[in-house]
Design a protein around this nucleic acid. Structure first.
Lengths: 187, 187
DNA sequence: ACCTGAACACCGTTCAAGT
DNA sequence: ACCTGAACACCGTTCAAGT
């Protein structure tokens, strides 16, 4: 929907939206092309093939939904407050959540795997240090981080079938986040 | 791999295996047909279309991985022991886990949605009553059941990227299950 | 009743040709 | 440099024909 010369970013953004709407299978060049006002042939000027587009989309997701968020939260001094803010961001964006569910829970194109591994590790490491700052020993902190991440991914998976498991932003979501915090930081 | 006349069940089982190996996208009639020693044309004698095959596969999954397991556990009188056995069964089958991840975490064919809804409700209801028997009030029991189910689905989602998050059957898995039980039944 | 093989539609990919 | 449109391969689907 941009002006004349399309950029690779335009295609990658459209691909990410398609993933949110219908999963990886919805990334079809033929259906993306008309949305961008181009022919499907023109796609191959920007990317070598569909897998390269998926890679670009997933890189975009890594930058916006992992690196940007961690950068934003790194300065929060209090670890509990950091976790609270993380949960707030994580659970208050249903569209982002659908992308999480689509990317983490299915056999994914082999060329996407390195990015997924990196994102998983980065997120778990970030939460592990936060739990350590809260006073838990290394191994316990890491196992709590994995549990937290599994809960996060699982909630979004379930919300595909039953959206009500994640409350809408507002006091209900705050309550939900506090309950999670209590569960996960209990010694 | 059966003898002469193929049955709809043969196709449904092959489809379920394909889901475990490569997700819903791997259910391709053209690749299933040779495995069953048939032409892809013959598929359409047994099923109306690919969606009907997916439905049958998912019904099979409902029977074996929800109803059969609940039937087996309903007789366990002690609720904590029931939960322990449920977790043991749930986490000790990686192939079944890959199916869980594939079916719960992505936008699924609309015709599969009713089965998924039914399975989700059935499982959450079963765990809700078990938590109630453990002494938690209705609302608390249900929220614990949802949390438990999210954890379960999330662990299998993560295991797609990092299989080590779920230990192999044995003492390590027992420890893992005990930790989960402790976390989820803490008041 | 159950299956085959040819035909066609759909979408990924290529490429010669346009501006 | 960026795009189009025709061509072809792949897989879902149909169907006439076989046993």
């Amino acid at each position: 929907v941009t002006k004349s010369p399309l950029t690779p970013i335009d295609w990658a953004q459209a691909a990410l939206e398609a993933i949110a709407d219908g999963g990886l299978a919805a990334v079809a060049i033929e259906s993306l092309a008309p949305k961008l006002g181009a022919s499907k042939g023109s796609f191959y000027w920007h990317y070598q093939d569909r897998a390269a587009l998926l890679e670009a989309a997933v890189h975009l997701w890594e930058a916006t939904r992992t690196e940007a968020i961690i950068a934003e939260l790194e300065d929060v001094a209090d670890p509990l407050e950091r976790l609270r803010k993380l949960f707030g961001i994580a659970f208050s964006n249903p569209q982002a959540g659908r992308i999480e569910a689509a990317l983490t829970a299915q056999p994914v194109h082999p060329r996407l795997q390195p990015v997924l591994n990196r994102v998983t590790e980065r997120r778990i490491d970030f939460m592990t240090s936060t739990f350590q700052e809260l006073g838990f020993a290394q191994a316990d902190a890491r196992s709590r981080a994995v549990t937290t991440y599994a809960l996060y991914v699982g909630y979004f998976a379930l919300s595909q079938t039953d959206p009500s498991v994640i409350p809408p932003a507002g006091p209900e979501l705050d309550r939900f986040v506090e309950d999670l915090l209590a569960l996960l930081t209990k010694s």
